[in-house]
């Protein structure tokens, strides 16, 4: 049986560089294979050791479970340590990720917005122009509030079974619980 599909990890900020090179008299860059640090591992290091979030909170940001996050983080530290000790290069590439930008929340009009111009600091709400903006609180997403979700339905083309559409999950990936055929949008 094939293994369960990996959940796609969310990465907020891709690294500004492609990797690291060691320097010093003993380094021979061409001889040693570089250590490949995946994007998700870089993100785990950034969240835990740079932004100082705990594993639970950081796992919510990356949209994976807490144990999975801890595994990604452990693998990241192991790779960085290996590069340091063995004097290898670090290449940051690959991994099952998608990129999402930083999100913010406006206290006045209660909207959430992102910042496509990453290098600019967010100062005011793009909608109402108030200065009461703060970083988006990811704890809401961890608790998974499904109450205010839109009201679409998925339907099974085979037997006509209907169920509410899950936001962010294409209907085609959904399987009908009755006849196990692919669902579609009503």
């Amino acid at each position: 049986m094939s293994p369960r599909i990996k959940r796609i990890r969310k990465v907020l900020n891709p690294p500004p560089i492609k990797g690291f090179k060691p320097y010093g008299p003993e380094t021979n860059n061409t001889q040693n294979e570089p250590v490949v640090l995946l994007y998700e591992e870089y993100e785990a290091l950034r969240l835990c050791d740079y932004d100082m979030y705990n594993h639970y909170y950081a796992s919510g940001i990356m949209n994976v479970s807490r144990p999975t996050f801890t595994r990604i983080y452990a693998s990241a530290r192991q790779k960085v340590a290996r590069a340091f000790v063995e004097g290898r290069q670090i290449a940051i590439e690959g991994g099952k990720v998608y990129f999402d930008s930083d999100w913010y929340h406006c206290e006045k009009c209660h909207c959430d917005f992102n910042n496509p111009a990453k290098e600019l600091q967010v100062e005011m709400c793009p909608l109402c122009g108030s200065k009461e903006v703060k970083d988006y609180d990811y704890t809401y997403e961890i608790e998974e509030n499904t109450e205010n979700r839109p009201f679409d339905t998925c339907i099974c083309p085979n037997c006509g079974f209907e169920q509410p559409h899950k936001s962010g999950k294409p209907c085609r990936q959904e399987e009908c619980p009755k006849c196990h055929s692919r669902m579609m949008r009503k």
């Binding site: 990129f99 209660h110 909207c111 496509p116 909608l127 936001s167």
Partner: peptide
């Protein structure tokens, strides 16, 4: 400006540098 953006949309709009604003008040 919309209520919510799907998983495919966020990545697409992000690469196009279009700002997304979510207003969860129907």
């Amino acid at each position: 400006i919309s209520g919510e953006f799907g998983i495919k949309i966020k990545a697409l709009l992000d690469s196009m540098k279009v700002q997304m604003i979510m207003l969860k008040d129907p």
